[in-house]
């Protein structure tokens, strides 16, 4: 290998690293949840899952199924919510690394009248420790319900 080729390759490696430095965040795994200190979980028997605008409904369906499995009476968009005790909203973020995967999911349990957040959970898993959407939903909802006193 001659010197010109070596310098050229070194420049490319440095340029790629610099591009990464300038345009990307970092890797992290976490799972957190918290709830309102005045929240009365025993009064929440029914929830309505509102669909995230632009989402195809698959995450909404998983969340509805999870809450149903946990014993709640569940409705979900586009069903009409019949005065639920809580409204459930969510935000899912997807990334591509060989295949698409859900990198982050936030689920918020809200007061249906005021939209005030009563409890929330968030999970964030990058590519190497990725989880399926169903596992992500399981983890977030379980962590939210674990905040019950």
């Amino acid at each position: 290998m001659n010197i010109a080729t070596l310098i050229s390759r070194t420049t490319w490696v440095a340029a790629l690293c610099a591009l990464t430095l300038l345009n990307t965040g970092c890797a992290v795994n976490r799972a957190t949840a918290s709830s309102d200190p005045t929240m009365n979980w025993s009064s929440i028997k029914s929830v309505h899952v509102a669909q995230l605008p632009g989402e195809d409904g698959s995450t909404k369906k998983l969340i509805a199924e999870k809450f149903r499995a946990k014993g709640f009476v569940v409705t979900a968009d586009p069903e009409v919510a019949a005065q639920p005790d809580a409204l459930v909203t969510y935000v899912d973020k997807w990334m591509w690394d060989m295949t698409m995967y859900m990198i982050e999911l936030t689920i918020v349990v809200r007061d249906p009248k005021s939209n005030f957040p009563l409890a929330q959970g968030n999970s964030y898993h990058t590519s190497l420790t990725r989880k399926s959407p169903a596992k992500m939903v399981d983890e977030v909802v379980d962590n939210i319900l674990n905040t019950r006193k």
């Binding site: 070596l6 070194t10 490696v13 690293c17 430095l21």
Partner: peptide, 17 residues
């Protein structure tokens, strides 16, 4: 020279991390 290139790349990566 090759080592220099690897060192430079590592330095940038460390700066990133």
């Amino acid at each position: 020279m090759a080592r220099l290139g690897i060192l430079a790349a590592c330095a940038v990566l460390l700066a990133l991390l």
